[in-house]
């Protein structure tokens, strides 16, 4: 019974996958607005640490978040594969820097497993689930949670 029910509700979701320090992450395709090659990011003095700076996309100024810093990973110099993924969090449009962007994958909701509750540290907060695919672990992140409640509140002030 449970199985049948599951299949009925088995939505197919699309995820944009990207790489960060040997791990593959996926984000909901609906929040991704565009993917850009890495370009010079103008630092904004006095900005919060997780904001790398701002970029110009066709005349609009967009803040770029340092994803590595957010995920607790060491900094790394950008290379040819480095991309800036422009996403929409709530009403905010921000860019996140990733090592590379791979593809869009289709996942059934039933394929998604809840993440192992190891710790409650900084990075676990925005992990939505995991998925095994071609012997690889895909970590699905919920970008809404990329910023803490307080940070978002700060933005909304």
């Amino acid at each position: 019974m449970a199985e049948v029910k599951k299949q009925e509700n088995d939505q197919v979701l699309q995820w944009v996958t990207f790489q960060l320090e040997n791990e593959t992450y996926g984000v909901d395709v609906m929040v991704v607005k565009e993917v850009l090659k890495f370009q010079d990011i103008a630092p904004v003095p006095g900005a919060p640490g997780y904001v790398m700076g701002i970029i110009n996309i066709r005349g609009t100024v967009i803040s770029v978040i340092n994803t590595r810093c957010r995920f607790g990973l060491p900094d790394r110099d950008p290379d040819d594969n480095t991309r800036i993924v422009i996403i929409e969090i709530g009403q905010h449009i921000v860019g996140i820097v990733v090592d590379s962007v791979a593809e869009v994958v289709y996942l059934k909701r039933s394929e998604i497993e809840t993440p192992p509750q190891v710790n409650k540290d900084e990075s676990a907060r925005f992990i939505q689930g995991v998925c095994h695919r071609d012997d690889q672990l895909l970590i699905l992140v919920e970008l809404d949670k990329l910023l803490t409640e307080e940070e978002l509140a700060e933005l909304d002030h």
Binding site: P45, V51, T60
Partner: peptide, 18 residues
């Protein structure tokens, strides 16, 4: 150009321009 909501209000920064 406004700095965007994330950076709005950063002390000493009035905005950005291209």
């Amino acid at each position: 150009k406004p700095l965007g909501r994330m950076l709005h209000g950063t002390p000493g920064m009035a905005g950005a321009t291209i």
